[in-house]
Simulated scan of single mutants.
Amino acid sequence: MALSIDAPTRVQDSHRLSARPVAPRTNRRLGVVAIVASATAMGAAGLFGRLATPADAVIGEALTLGRMLVGALGMLVLLTVSRHLGQLRRARLSWSVVLGGVFLGISLATYLSATVLIDLSLAVVLHYIGPALATLLARVMLKERITHPDLLSLAASFLGMMLAAGLVGGAPSPASDQQTLGVVLGVVSGVFYGAALLCYRYRSDMPADVRSFWNFTFGTVATGAMVALARPDLSGMTPTHWVWAGGFFLVCGLLALGLLVVAGKHLRAAELSGLSYWEVVVAMMIGAAAFGESVSLLAVLGAGLIVVGAVLPLLSGRPR
Rank of each mutant, 00 (worst) to 15 (best):
L234Q: 00
T115I: 09
Q178M: 11
D205K: 04
S189F: 09
M68F: 10
V261P: 01
V210I: 15
L117A: 10
K143D: 07
V11I: 15
T135W: 06
T110C: 07
L152P: 09
D205M: 05
Q178P: 08
A72S: 08
V295A: 09
G292A: 12
S212M: 02
S107G: 08
A263E: 01
F103H: 06
G264P: 11
L312M: 06
A165K: 01
R90A: 14
S176P: 08
H241C: 12
V311Y: 05
R28T: 15
S296W: 03
V184E: 08
T9H: 12
R28S: 14
A91L: 14
S276M: 11
G71F: 09
F213M: 08
A37H: 09
V32T: 07
M75S: 07
A41E: 08
F158L: 00
A228Y: 10
L315M: 09
A41F: 15
T9A: 11
G170N: 07
L167D: 07
A114N: 03
V221F: 03
V184N: 12
R67A: 02
P319E: 03
W242G: 10
V102D: 09
G74I: 06
A230Y: 11
F248P: 13
G190Q: 00
L185T: 03
I146S: 13
G166C: 11
R231H: 14
D56I: 10
A72F: 04
Y128H: 01
A23G: 01
L181S: 12
E293I: 03
D150M: 08
A289I: 15
L126F: 00
L163N: 08
S173T: 13
N215M: 10
